[in-house]
């Protein structure tokens, strides 16, 4: 079965979404991630969507869910690399992803994760 790979870097999990996702793939990622957070006791999750040229309400909802459930499991989520056209479209769609932390790129995202995870 097709899956989006989850990489582990120390205390953090890194997900880079590069394919045009169908809904089942998004749901699988959500399940895989929560399972990995619990198994590895990860402190943070970084989701890189710089390669995505579209985020619709389904993917937006998935991102919100991942952020919410990782918080319950004591891990921070940072979403990085959203393209301008995607951001404008999401806002127009009515999805503002409240509560989801964001950063411009992977480097900044990791910095933010470290600050958040180790300041508690």
């Amino acid at each position: 079965m097709e899956r989006i790979p989850i990489l582990q870097m120390g205390d953090f999990l890194l997900v880079t979404i590069q394919v045009d996702m169908h809904d089942q793939l998004a749901l699988t990622l959500q399940d895989d991630l929560s399972e990995r957070i619990s198994r590895t006791s990860a402190r943070g999750v970084l989701i890189d969507i710089s390669a995505l040229d579209m985020v619709d309400s389904f993917i937006g909802r998935m991102i919100g869910m991942i952020s919410g459930l990782s918080r319950i499991m004591d891990a921070e989520t940072v979403l990085v690399g959203m393209q301008p056209a995607v951001a404008i479209t999401l806002v127009e769609l009515g999805m503002t992803l409240p509560g989801v932390s964001t950063a411009l790129n992977v480097e900044r995202g990791m910095k933010l994760l470290r600050e958040r995870a180790y300041s508690q």
Partner: peptide
């Protein structure tokens, strides 16, 4: 234009679903 294209493709995704 890229912005309009992105908006259209997103609308297509919602409606096709």
């Amino acid at each position: 234009r890229l912005i309009d294209l992105t908006k259209l493709v997103t609308a297509v995704s919602e409606l096709a679903r």
